[in-house]
C-alpha cells in the first residue's frame, strides 16, 4: 500500500517492510519522525521546533496542559489539520515509515488509512455494529461477505468487544455503552489495517471500568500497532505508555522512557507538571 499517488516507492507499510522473520528481534526503529517542525494556526504559532521519534510497536503518550500543542501535533501525524483552513506548516517535516507525509504527492486518504484515529468522544455511525466496523472497507469497494465477516470478527476481537456483541451485530452501534462505543470506534479504525493508531484522550468520557478495558486494549494492540495517545490523566500515561513526551506552550520540553519521566524527570517543568505543582 503506497501513500503517494504517483510514486509507490516513497512510503511502504511498516508491516510489509518488517515482516521478515529473524531469530533475534531487530531493535525497534522510528516509525514516526518529527523533525524541526513548526506549525501555525493563522499568525499564531502552535508548535515550535518539534523533534521526536516514535518507535514501532511502542505506545507514546503526549502530556501537557491544555493548549500546549499535544493534540495539534497528534492531528498533524495524519494531516487532520489539513481540514482547518488557517492551519499551515512553518518548517520541518513529519515522516511516517521514512516518507514525508506533507509531500504534495501524498494521498491523504491513504495516509489516514495507514494512520488511524480514535477521538475523545466516541463517534459510531448510526448504523449496525457490523456496518460500523466495515465502513472503511465498504468505502474501499470491498463487498465480499466472507471477507467482511472475517474483518468484523478479527477487528471486534482486536478491540476486545467480540464477546460482548457477537450475538447482536445487527443492532445499532449507538445502542452500546460509552466504553463499548469507544472500543467499536477502535475496531472500525483497525478494519483498514493501519500501522499507527492516534488516540486523542480516548478515555476522557469513560468510567473507570471502561477506561481499564481501553487501557488493556491499548496494551495488547501495541504488539501489532504503533500507538500515540494524548491524555490529561497522568496515571493513564504512566500505565499505558512506553515513552512519554511533555509539551508546554507549543514546545516539546522532555521526552523519555515513561518510567524515567515519572520517576526521575530531567526537566523541572516536567517534574512540576506531573506532580501537580504546575501553574
Amino acid at each position: 500500500m503506497a501513500l503517494v499517488k504517483d510514486n509507490p516507492k516513497v512510503i511502504t507499510s511498516s508491516k510489509t517492510s518488517s515482516s521478515m522473520a529473524t531469530e533475534k528481534p531487530e531493535p525497534k526503529r522510528p516509525l514516526i519522525r518529527v523533525a524541526d517542525f513548526d506549525f501555525y494556526y493563522g499568525e499564531k504559532q502552535a508548535l515550535f521546533d518539534i523533534n521526536m521519534d516514535m518507535k514501532e510497536n511502542e505506545v507514546t503518550a503526549f502530556i501537557g496542559p491544555s493548549g500546549c500543542g499535544k493534540s495539534t501535533l497528534l492531528r498533524c501525524i495524519n494531516r487532520m489539520n489539513d481540514l482547518v483552513e488557517v492551519a499551515r506548516i512553518g518548517r520541518g517535516k513529519i515522516e511516517v515509515n521514512g516518507a514525508d507525509i506533507y509531500d504534495p504527492r501524498v494521498d491523504t486518504i491513504e495516509l489516514r488509512k495507514r494512520v488511524g484515529m480514535v477521538f475523545q468522544k466516541s463517534n459510531p455511525f448510526p448504523k449496525s455494529i457490523y456496518e460500523n466496523v466495515i465502513y472503511g472497507l465498504r468505502i474501499q469497494g470491498i463487498n465480499k461477505k466472507s471477507v467482511l465477516d472475517e474483518a468484523v470478527e478479527r477487528c471486534l476481537k482486536g478491540a476486545a468487544l467480540w464477546d460482548e456483541v457477537r450475538d447482536r451485530l445487527d443492532t445499532s452501534g449507538l445502542s452500546l455503552s460509552g466504553g463499548q462505543q469507544q472500543r467499536l470506534c477502535i475496531a472500525r479504525a483497525l478494519a483498514v489495517e493501519p500501522d499507527i493508531l492516534l488516540m486523542d484522550e480516548p478515555c476522557s468520557a469513560l468510567d473507570p471500568v471502561a477506561t481499564a478495558k481501553v487501557e488493556e486494549l491499548i496494551h495488547s494492540l501495541k504488539k501489532e500497532y504503533t500507538i500515540v495517545i494524548v491524555t490529561h490523566n497522568m496515571q493513564q500515561a504512566a500505565r499505558v505508555s512506553d515513552k512519554t513526551a511533555f509539551f508546554y506552550l507549543g514546545k516539546l520540553i522532555e521526552m523519555a522512557k515513561t518510567d524515567e519521566i515519572f520517576m526521575s524527570p530531567k526537566n523541572e517543568q516536567t517534574e512540576a507538571y506531573i506532580s501537580g505543582r504546575f501553574g
Binding site: M234, Q235, A238, F262, M263, S264, P265, E271, I274, S275
Partner: peptide
C-alpha cells in the same frame, strides 16, 4: 498517586 521526587 505521587510520582518523581515525591515518590522517591
Amino acid at each position: 498517586a505521587p510520582v518523581a521526587r515525591d515518590l522517591r
